[in-house]
Design a binder for these strands. Sequence first.
DNA 1: TTGTATGCGTTATCAT
DNA 2: ATGATAACGCATACAA
Lengths: 377, 377
Amino acid sequence: MLFSLFSKAVDRKRAKHYHKIIYYVLVHIKIVSGFGAIMATIKQISELSGVSRGTVDRVLNGRGHVSPEKERLVRSIAEQVGYTPNRAGKALAARKKSYIIGVLLASEGNPFFGEVIRGVHEAERELHDYGVKVVLRTQKGYDVAAQLAAMDEMGEDTNALILNPINDPAVAEKINALSDRGVQMYTLNTDIEDCRRLCYIGSDYFEGGRIACGMLGLLTGGVANVGILTGSVHILGHKQRINGFLDVMYKKYPKFRFLSIMETEDDDMIGFESTRRMLTEYPEIDTIFLAAAGVYGVCRAVQSFLPERRLHIVSFDHIPQTEELMRAGLIQATICQQPFAQGYEAVKLAFNSLMNGMPPAEQQFIVKNDIRILENL
Amino acid sequence: MLFSLFSKAVDRKRAKHYHKIIYYVLVHIKIVSGFGAIMATIKQISELSGVSRGTVDRVLNGRGHVSPEKERLVRSIAEQVGYTPNRAGKALAARKKSYIIGVLLASEGNPFFGEVIRGVHEAERELHDYGVKVVLRTQKGYDVAAQLAAMDEMGEDTNALILNPINDPAVAEKINALSDRGVQMYTLNTDIEDCRRLCYIGSDYFEGGRIACGMLGLLTGGVANVGILTGSVHILGHKQRINGFLDVMYKKYPKFRFLSIMETEDDDMIGFESTRRMLTEYPEIDTIFLAAAGVYGVCRAVQSFLPERRLHIVSFDHIPQTEELMRAGLIQATICQQPFAQGYEAVKLAFNSLMNGMPPAEQQFIVKNDIRILENL
DNA sequence: TTGTATGCGTTATCAT
DNA sequence: ATGATAACGCATACAA
């Protein structure tokens, strides 16, 4: 290989005499090897440019303290040889200090997050070799003060913090504060506006709503009296799902009649009661779009109050009761948002940014919505 | 940290005096650090056991030439400290020799494989740092002799070979021959029986068929006159899809009437003609299960000969015409088999086995079948 | 400003 | 059979 001309056997002085010739060759000849691109290393760049490895490192990592002409020279050569840092080498060197990635999930007792956590742990396992520590902390329910407190505590000793933020200005502010303190911030599963998070990892709720409507359109043959049950109109994701649903409904299904919308507050009991009232007020409802949690309560209400009629129901996510409800024929389809991938990718993204000292290229990592019926549950 | 007691500052002789004590402690006390498991290294094991790193390496990698008692000692300590090799270190050391992974795809002109190839390239990009070369070769159509010849050629200079095998005994035999020659063999997208491939990467065709039937059950309300179009009854995957379809049909949809099955030979023109004949012979058909390629030809036939009637059609895969056909309302749903993931995971799996010198833990890597409707295409 | 030396974990080579 | 040592690519503390 070309570069081995100046391996350790040849000292720097000889190299200095040759490096201009080599450089000339590099500039004017397109270099290819038998199998693909050459993998340039810092050492090779130092030999080609006649400066030390340390200087090359300083240039390539912008550490300063290097003369302009050498800087230009090194940059130029690195460009010519198409230098990209070697991850294995970086990882090994980085092992002395270890990165700590915090994961703060505000939702104990929400079965949806089980898979998210599995994904987090899988990423932790894979990154174990790279000296990464993952600190996971879960909280019960949506309490702004509690979330803020936990963020402060975890921000103390983490290099990156991943959380599913409560949609409250105080949380956005705290995200900015921690970001300024040097903690790389990520939002998981739900995003929050007006803050300096590096990336949102989660699903496209609007698309999820569109898919739900498309599915119900197919199931009903395009004719339906629709009732919608949402968690809370104040929760951004739920609202976006409903907007998506209505988007498809208005454009594609003129024979859909939208009769009523009520809230479950993500609770089975409240869902039961809301559904009961909805069905007594609008007994002609034959199709239910279930945009949030409380699925089991809603379905039980349907079963209790319209035992003879077969409604069309599409829900979200896959929780333990989902299979039972699908097997019973109450729910025909449920739309999942790849919870495992959300947890997994969030940790990996955070690690990669820490590793290369650069924020993720994309500000969003959107996981695909996933249609499930009984056969592929 | 515990192990640093015997860092380089302390010489081997002192270590030898202490290692039995430490060993005792290790055996009787469960070791935990603040953040999780200790990451044991070969160096630490050598210090604890009082043997050299070389010997530890010889034991842990089964290179032989080591006395039984030292072997037992090292094994025991490695077990106690829960040693797992560090991938970054391995990668760096392995860079001197570079692995070559061959990918042989027999299907030029089949749009399905575009995404598979994208997955292969993405894996290649990610593994670039680890000195992996991927050699991709594609072939037109299914010609056993051509595939055998290509296998022989590629087997010469590859450490692993991934291919979508033609279902022919000669191919199985060649897979065994190459395997015996030390090439690690993988089957991609379609499997083949009675051969020593290390792993099959692809979808579960039986499940795919079940999902298709479940979907048509939902679309038709459980009442349908069904026609099936397959590629060839001789192709294993197609047969499995049909078996899956019939499985659900018999168990769950007693009002499905199965009227006819014909072949498309994966060709649009033949598909058109087969469909035309099917629809003239059984004009009562209102539901079509499209288990193979030739999708466009079939749909055009439906459009030509039953322009007024609205059939229910479920197909497989996502090719360029699929979206047009769905938009036109001819196809309601198509079941995809994650082609990108197939290509990506195949290469990664092959690399991992080469890296740790161990075949994959599982003999199959099954990607999920994925329901698509117009809204999530 | 610039260069040198060392170490991260693993593997291979060379001595003994 | 066993131990010592160099090398892989990168980062950094230290020396000049």
